[in-house]
């Protein structure tokens, strides 16, 4: 028997979970069916959208001087929720990744990250040009 709070909506139902087998659980305390779905996914296949940053490289020499505050990091995220147990490995991968500017929002930086079928994509367009 374990407990968790459903985060699907702000109601925050307190769920009680009974484990039946490796792949089966029973859920009580939920006020709607989404609570059960949430508990099952969270207990059996927990996933998170991972957002982090990668190093931006290849900024032309002059561009640095043009804006002292230009981003040194490129924000990235997984295109879909990512298996929780593989997050540390993914973070390492992202930390070692260098992204050459310019970069476009939505650009796939790592396809099929760690064999999950989920891509790592840039979430910000960063050009090298003069700002408007």
């Amino acid at each position: 028997m374990s407990e968790m709070i459903c985060i699907t909506c702000p109601l925050g139902c307190h769920l009680s979970i009974q484990r039946i087998s490796e792949t089966e659980i029973s859920v009580t305390g939920n006020r709607c069916s989404r609570g059960e779905t949430y508990a099952k996914e969270e207990l059996l296949f927990p996933k998170r959208v991972v957002t982090t940053t990668c190093r931006a490289v290849g900024l032309p020499a002059g561009a640095q001087a043009a804006s002292l505050y230009a981003p040194r990091r490129v924000p990235v995220r997984t295109a879909d929720a990512f298996p929780k147990e593989k997050i540390p490995e993914l973070l390492k991968l992202a930390a070692n990744l260098e992204v050459t500017l310019p970069v476009r929002r939505g650009e796939v930086l790592v396809r099929d990250a760690l064999g999950t079928g989920i891509d790592l994509v840039a979430t910000r367009t960063i050009s090298c040009g003069e700002p408007s």
């Binding site: 924000p75 995220r77 929002r105 910000r124 367009t125």
Partner: peptide, 25 residues
């Protein structure tokens, strides 16, 4: 928004979950 790189933005405005920079851009 440009520094809010986490996701959770845009569900109402764009009907998808976006990071801050994506929403802003």
């Amino acid at each position: 928004l440009m520094q809010c790189i986490h996701n959770g933005f845009g569900l109402i405005e764009f009907n998808e979950e976006l990071s801050g920079p994506e929403f802003a851009q």
